[in-house]
Design a protein around this nucleic acid. Structure first.
Lengths: 338, 338
DNA sequence: GACTGGCACTTGACCGGTGAGAGTGCCAAA
DNA sequence: TTTGGCACTCTCACCGGTCAAGTGCCAGTC
């Protein structure tokens, strides 16, 4: 028995099922694919594939549909990489080049990704903790207030206003500014926090309370979990493709989309390269008929964050993977450019 | 014939229909409300109400359901204001007081509003154009770059980095800072733009190109439509309540939620006080079985922006209106405090 | 004049039976 | 190893009957 043909059958089943959303039988499969064998042969192959757990039948006498394991094999070995059309590439490019700041880049990415894939798109904002400090500014405002501004390598700007117990002298502000700049610029944010902590020692006991409170605020900003976990979601109208039963198919996904913590776990670690998680592989019950295609994006060799799509397991994997990969590349490039 | 009783019947129909989601007949209505009359009398009243267009029947022999006109009358004249429970008040308060900045306030408001109403919540970010300038900072960065920071009365901080053609002298930066501050602080953003334009004339022809490019960027920031139109949406999982038919009931709403322009129109003008738009009153086809409860929020007598909820026309109007109003008040207060 | 009880009528929901269609598994033959 | 044939299974759409809910109308009562 030819192993190759059986894999061809599995590929045909996945493709047909994705296209038609209906269980595919031996005969209708041959209508769409020339395998050069008879329906009976295909049936035998199907029986084997079912034994091995790649496909299953909803009820005794219906066609077959792929299992998670079947999709997994398809993604790993059977799908051919689908190149994006020039029109799609151009769409991504024109969409992203108009962006004015990081927020805008993220929001436009979500939109273009949702449109390209017809799925729900998720884009994580560039991680703060993975960025380096590009510039730090320290400005005395009216009274005893001080404005702190941090600009990171990914172009993100964070600012805080703090109220000090006493008014700062101009010379101390200038001194602080240069010392803080020297200690932090070019460092990753977590390291910058350490440098700052060390720096406190170098000030006179007199100034130390004020310096400490400024440093504390900066450190908070550097390790700000809240903004490190920001996420944009788009294309929720595409949830229609998940199925018709709201409670079992759509609601769990909507609920997951509302929980940042869950979303972050779903996007997964920002490893380089494309990641596909199918059904139970998502590790989230309620998303058992859902697949997630995600990819890290970043500048050069530094992964800044992750983006991806959430769709039904019966999705066009090659197309989705191509789109996610392409958008990730373009976003990384756009952020590096600014 | 007593007009009062007929209104009582309408109120009972609305309340029952909202509670049960099922057409209400004369008998089952009397099971839940003591009107002191017989079913036949109620039937007569119902016939009149139907003639007048306040209720309708899905098919010849089913109970009645309110029409948009019926809900409108209910909202205008029949509903009694429902006070929030102390627990609900406390929930709002504790939720909002933890907020660290404007972004956080908005995001927490969306969440609490969605939870209180079990509907989709929308919160518009405080409008830039309605705020006044609280502080402007101008900082020379490395090379010929300049950082502009604007802090508005609503606590929002906007920043821009611009690349000038030539490096600025320290004295010019200081001069610019004081003059810009004098011209703009305390002004509404649109007026501040005008003051800035006038100010350009007062500089020497030599400095004018640099000043112009800085002023241009500031003006752009002041009248930044993109950030003036920012909106946060939450509680989409509550779409379950809209009905079971995805394509007609849920998809149009999801699509509207994705289009900021549509959302802004739906929230409506930030007039003070509560606004309720029912069915076709939303002016958006696809939302014909949807009602929007919105309210402006702001500091003192200045409306900053709008927030509200989107839900099915068969919603608990008194409860929703109470929640929207309360959240709007708390958000306004929170923003004023910071 | 307003309200009530009774009655005939309408209609969608529910239920069980039936037939068509699609698909399968298995077997004997090529 | 592949193929054609055949019996079998299961779902789904359809149909008719029954049921419950609700209505409109009418004659009678307070």
């Amino acid at each position: 028995m030819s192993d190759d043909r059986r894999l061809d059958v599995l590929r045909a089943i996945v493709e047909d099922y994705v296209a038609t959303q209906e269980p595919v039988g031996s005969k209708s499969l041959l209508d769409r694919h020339q395998l050069g064998v008879s329906p009976a042969t295909v049936r035998n192959d199907m029986a084997v594939l079912e034994d091995e757990g790649y496909i299953t039948q909803p009820h005794t006498s219906a066609g077959r549909i792929p299992t998670d394991k079947g999709y997994r094999l398809f993604v790993d070995r059977l799908s051919t990489v689908k190149a994006l059309s020039p029109a799609e590439r151009r769409a991504i490019e024109t969409f992203l080049t108009g962006a004015v700041d990081v927020d805008d880049v993220v929001q436009r990415s979500v939109k273009v990704l949702a449109q390209l894939t017809n799925q729900v798109a998720i884009v994580q904002y560039p991680s703060l903790t993975r960025s380096t400090v590009r510039h730090i500014e320290l400005v005395a405002l009216e009274g005893s207030r001080v404005l702190l501004v941090v600009i990171t390598s990914s172009g993100r700007v964070e600012q805080r206003i703090i109220e000090l117990v006493e008014t700062l002298g101009d010379d101390l502000v200038a001194d602080l500014r240069t010392r803080i700049t020297r200690a932090t610029v070019g460092e990753r944010l977590p390291e910058a926090s350490l440098r700052l902590a060390e720096m406190i020692e170098t000030f006179s006991a007199n100034d130390r309370p004020v310096v400490t409170s400024i440093v504390t605020t900066l450190t908070q900003t550097f390790t700000n979990e809240r903004s490190d976990e920001r996420i944009a979601v788009g294309g929720t109208a595409n949830l229609a493709r998940f199925g018709s039963d709201f409670d079992t198919a759509i609601k769990p996904v909507l609920e997951a989309m509302e929980e940042q913590v869950v979303l972050l776990r779903l996007l997964g670690e920002a490893t380089s390269g494309l990641s596909v998680r199918i059904g139970t592989e998502t590790g989230h019950e309620g998303l058992s008929s859902t697949a997630i295609v995600s990819s890290a994006y970043g500048t050069d060799d530094l992964a800044l964050a992750t983006l991806g799509t959430v769709g039904p397991t019966r999705m066009d994997y090659p197309g989705t993977m191509a789109a996610v990969g392409a958008v990730a590349r373009y976003v990384g490039r756009t952020l590096a450019d600014n």
